[in-house]
Every structure is written in structure tokens, then in C-alpha cells.
């Protein structure tokens, strides 16, 4: 009986749109896109942070590591192909994450057209700053690429010598300031983002809630401190 009521008139059931379309159209689906793209970027950040710590082993180690990144996958992959594949993948993740965030934010703001007179902000700082924090991080990535990938705004800007370029950036006050703000922003973003992504992907449960929050906090702290170690190393003269 119930089965018959689910059949469209005319005897033929309506065909639902393809799964990726349904995913993108629903709020939960868009959040899933954000969670997966965010997880990819987070995974990259962990390796990026670990790679950065090479700076403490001296210029040969750091520059050698940077050169090796261009040869990964050879001879199956051509020179620098691995790097470009990673870049394309990351760019896709950034675009998907940003577009989904923009569309969801617009929807969220429209869902509360009239606010409360008696305001009470009780969500955590990390949660409240997700949107603007994300914008700050996107702007930082632009500066960071111009600084240490293309070298356009780097005081040294010598291709193939990342160690010297890093030292040059963190020898300026603005380099330290921009980087410092961005690394705090990344920590806050990961703190809420990791927990939120786990929830969205269905990994949350009553018993796991605390563990997920603690993991998010630990991950955020390790990433921020790991990244900040480099400018601190340069400023204190451990790295020169």
C-alpha cells in the first residue's frame, strides 16, 4: 500500500537527479564537500608543517628536500609532475571549499532575517570566526605563494633556495606579523573545522564527542606551534 503511494501518477516513478547533483543541492551534501575538501587541505598542512621543520637542519637539508619534492614519482612521473598534481588537487579543494562556504553562508544568513534584540554570543571564538578566518587564510595563501613559491614579494626571491628565502621573509617585521596572524587563524579554523567535518561525515556519536573535540584541539595546537617554530627560529637566531 505504502509502496504504491510512493509511485508518481502515470505509473512511472520520477527519476531523481544524479547523485552528485543531489549532493551539491542539499545543505548536508554541500557540507560534505566542505568536509572532504577541508580534510584534504588538512592532510596537506600536516605534511607541509613537517617539511618546514627541515629548516632546523640547515640549508642543505631544506633545499635538498625542496628539490626532492620535484623529483617524487620519477621516472613514472615527469620532473615536477607530482608537485603540479598536488597543486591542481589543492586548488580544486580550495575552490570547492570556498564556493560551498559562500553558498551555505548566504543561505544561513537568509535563514535569520530578523535578529534578536537581546544578543548573546555563546558559541566559541573558533566557531564564530570560521567565515572571516577562512577569508583571512585565503588572502594569506595568495601572499604566501607570491612570497615563497614565485618569489615576487620575497626580499631575497632566489629560485631553488627556499632556505635563504624563508630566512629573508622572517627577517622582516611584516613577514613575521602576517605569518603569525595567519598561523593563529589556521589553528582556530582547524579547531572547529576538524570537529565539524567529523560530524558532517557522520563520524560523531555521543561517546566519541569528547575524543573528537580533543583531537581537534591537539591538531590545531600542533599545527600552529609547528608552523610558528620557523619564524621563531629565525628571530631567535637558531636558524640563520
Amino acid at each position: 500500500m505504502a509502496l504504491a503511494t510512493r509511485t508518481a501518477r502515470g505509473g512511472r516513478p520520477e527519476r531523481p537527479p544524479p547523485t552528485p547533483v543531489r549532493l551539491w543541492r542539499s545543505t548536508i551534501g554541500k557540507k560534505t564537500v566542505m568536509a572532504v575538501s577541508g580534510a584534504l587541505m588538512l592532510l596537506y598542512l600536516v605534511f607541509h608543517m613537517l617539511g618546514n621543520l627541515k629548516v632546523f637542519f640547515g640549508p642543505d637539508d631544506m633545499n635538498g628536500y625542496a628539490h626532492w619534492l620535484r623529483t617524487v614519482g620519477e621516472p613514472v612521473l615527469h620532473h615536477e609532475w607530482f608537485l603540479w598534481l598536488a597543486r591542481v588537487g589543492l586548488l580544486a579543494a580550495v575552490v570547492a571549499h570556498g564556493v560551498a562556504a559562500y553558498q551555505l553562508s548566504r543561505r544561513d544568513i537568509a535563514a535569520r532575517p530578523v535578529g534578536y534584540r537581546h544578543r548573546r554570543a555563546r558559541t566559541s571564538y573558533a566557531t564564530r570566526t570560521m567565515r572571516w578566518g577562512g577569508v583571512i587564510l585565503a588572502l594569506f595563501v595568495v601572499w604566501h605563494l607570491l612570497d615563497l613559491t614565485t618569489g615576487h614579494v620575497n626580499p631575497n626571491g632566489e629560485a631553488g633556495r627556499p632556505y635563504e628565502n624563508v630566512v629573508a621573509t622572517f627577517s622582516t617585521w611584516y613577514g613575521n606579523a602576517i605569518y603569525g596572524v595567519a598561523m593563529v587563524a589556521v589553528g582556530l579554523h582547524v579547531r572547529h573545522g576538524f570537529f565539524s567535518a567529523a560530524q558532517t561525515l557522520g563520524a560523531g556519536s555521543v561517546g566519541r564527542d569528547r575524543a573528537l573535540r580533543l583531537t581537534a584541539d591537539a591538531l590545531a595546537l600542533v599545527l600552529t606551534l609547528g608552523f610558528l617554530a620557523v619564524p621563531i627560529g629565525v628571530t631567535t637566531g637558531i636558524v640563520e
Binding site: 548536508i28 566557531t127 570560521m130 560530524q199 558532517t200 560523531g204 556519536s205 566519541r208
Partner: peptide, 27 residues
């Protein structure tokens, strides 16, 4: 609107529905 996992909902729920239920629905 969509869920941003702020947890405000569960903190005011008079019946104590846990935030984890949202994760169950996502799953």
C-alpha cells in the same frame, strides 16, 4: 539554514537531544 556544528541547539534543547544525532542523520 545549514548546520555549522556550533552546538547552540543542543545546549537549549529542553529534552537534551544530543548533537551526535545530527551526525547520525548525516551518516
Amino acid at each position: 539554514g545549514g548546520c555549522t556544528n556550533t552546538g547552540m541547539c543542543t545546549s537549549v534543547c529542553p529534552k537534551g537531544i544530543p548533537l551526535a544525532s545530527i551526525s547520525t542523520m548525516n551518516r
